[in-house]
Design a protein around this nucleic acid. Structure first.
Lengths: 327, 327
DNA sequence: CTGAAAGCGCTTACAG
DNA sequence: CTGAAAGCGCTTACAG
């Protein structure tokens, strides 16, 4: 049987109170008892039961992370950094892959609440919205407006969209296409599209935006992209809302005999380590994933600790253009 | 304040015992009380505190997953599937990115034990080894021998290595190189190398294996690969132990004016969705990630439920050759 | 069919 | 400097 605090107390010949105190380094204890207790703990190979501690303290040091899927390199890397930063602050991560399905997100939130997590970081992009406000829990959203009060963290989407669009213009593209997620979502990421449209207008170009149903749940984009290329044979530039779509586009374009960048120039968005490794020639707008993770974790911890005044409603971190072969 | 079971009991005019019974659907309860209790729960927006339940039941329904990093596409996808399968079996996932560092793995295991997880799935590949046997907890390893008793799940590494090596031979390669992780690890993955060496020997070829220090922790492989190409200008075939290394190799080779596959044919290992999407031309041995995840979860659950006799010591799942442009 | 009591493994006022 | 008691929010024998 697992030794418990009482066993340690018995062995050390002290009260459970005393053991608890040396465990938590609270109150005055003589060096001698302290040593005896430590010896007893060692001897029994004792470690405290955090479930019992949580029940009392009403703190689990657990944070729930809801994302579409860790299979997507952006979210895989985001998850890594979030977990890493949580760990160094004494928090643990409960992971939830919602696949952008509202019902899954809802049942995950229920699960997290029953498990008494201290906070939730939400990075899903559903159509519907879970009402996090009345859950009475610390929440931070990544690139998504959840309510008037829930803080949002993301990359500087407008700047990213602007840099990408202007680069394509500078390179001499005449017919620039944009592929984005569904606009109705009203996410900060739709600013990428807004920037694209603004730049096109400034340069007297027509803005043509295609929407992919769900850019985060990995799926085969080749077919819709093929149709798109057939409908717009004049296209000579593409700004894709993420690198996976950009990669699908490049593959499809090549199949149709188009050369990249000679015939079509392509820019993606995200710039994950994985993309940099597997497709180094892709020009892309790199999100500061680690900084996004850091902000999200810091903000949710501030909320947990009640420091609401120090939590800005919106935090946008700078992006970086990575210019490579596809442009 | 969060409503508790007692509040529900008060409102419904019954004892806490009764509320607990309707919550757990245990014992006989009249329809009428059942309804009154349900009404009270609704009215108060009550949901049970799983921390308290866990303290009593000594079951948390929590599983710990220790992997190098979700940033790596193989582990990102593995994590997704494991979490997914856990969720459908009522388990939750606590995620731990060890970066293959022994000290991190150790402190994660401590953390998981304190949090009373029901089981642990281990997918790290350190040099040192944590003694999981004496932790007295359900453990399953992925592609790693942890002890004589801990079950291992993985792909059929020998078959994968054989298929890759033979394909290169069939394609007419004369000087085939293999890049692998450090052998001392004695992981089942080293069977990929064994198969390569056996095939080379059968065909009277020299086996040349290079070792990359840590193929899982993403890093820049370009420099060592560059040296390797300089030392072996005659190489016309490469079997890489994973797709990321294969991609680095291809990029480096191209920089040196080598054409793939005309001058050098390349085969990777893993075949993740992400690689298929970003680098569809890469020929690779695809691991059955979802099946590995399913086996790992099923086995750890069997251990948790005490059905040790149904847990095989080693489970190797079939791989699939994906032949594409690099070969 | 329902309830009072004890207990899961800890922690913290409160006394001394 | 140390301990007895009560309690965190549940559940389960045991009675009735």
């Amino acid at each position: 049987m697992k030794p418990k605090l009482n066993d340690v107390a018995d062995l050390a010949g002290v009260s459970p109170t005393t053991v608890s105190r040396v465990l938590n380094n609270r109150g005055y204890i003589s060096e001698e008892t302290k040593n005896r207790v430590h010896d007893a703990m060692q001897q029994l190979n004792y470690f405290p039961n955090d479930v019992a501690r949580s029940l009392f303290s009403k703190r689990t040091n657990l944070i729930g992370l809801i994302i579409p899927t860790t299979s997507n390199p952006f979210f895989g890397e985001l998850t890594f950094h979030i977990e890493n930063i949580c760990a160094s602050s004494g928090y643990k991560l409960l992971i939830c892959n919602s696949l952008n399905q509202l019902d899954k997100e809802e049942s995950y939130v229920d699960m997290l609440m029953r498990n008494q997590v201290d906070g939730i970081i939400v990075g899903t992009h559903n159509r519907g919205i879970v009402n996090y406000d009345q859950k009475n829990i610390a929440v931070v959203a990544i690139d998504r407006f959840l309510s008037d009060t829930i803080p949002v963290v993301g990359s500087d989407n407008y700047m990213g969209g602007k840099m990408a669009s202007e680069l394509l213009i500078d390179k001499g593209c005449k017919h620039i296409l944009h592929i984005n997620g569904p606009v109705e979502l009203e996410t900060p990421a739709s600013l990428r599209r807004k920037a694209y449209e603004d730049v096109m207008e400034q340069h007297g170009r027509e803005a043509i935006t295609y929407e992919v149903y769900d850019p985060f749940h990995q799926q085969n984009h080749d077919e819709p992209i093929g149709r798109l290329l057939d409908e717009h044979p004049e296209v000579d530039g593409l700004f894709a809302s993420n690198d996976l779509v950009a990669a699908s586009f490049i593959a499809t374009a090549k199949q149709r005999g188009k050369r990249v960048p000679e015939d079509i120039r392509v820019i993606g968005y995200d710039g994950t380590e994985t993309t940099r490794n597997l497709l180094p020639e892709l020009t892309t707008i790199q999100q500061p994933i680690q900084e996004i993770a850091r902000s999200a974790v810091e903000l949710v911890i501030k909320e947990i600790e009640g420091e609401f005044s120090e939590v800005p409603r919106e935090t946008y971190l700078p992006v970086k253009l990575i210019e490579a072969g596809t442009v």
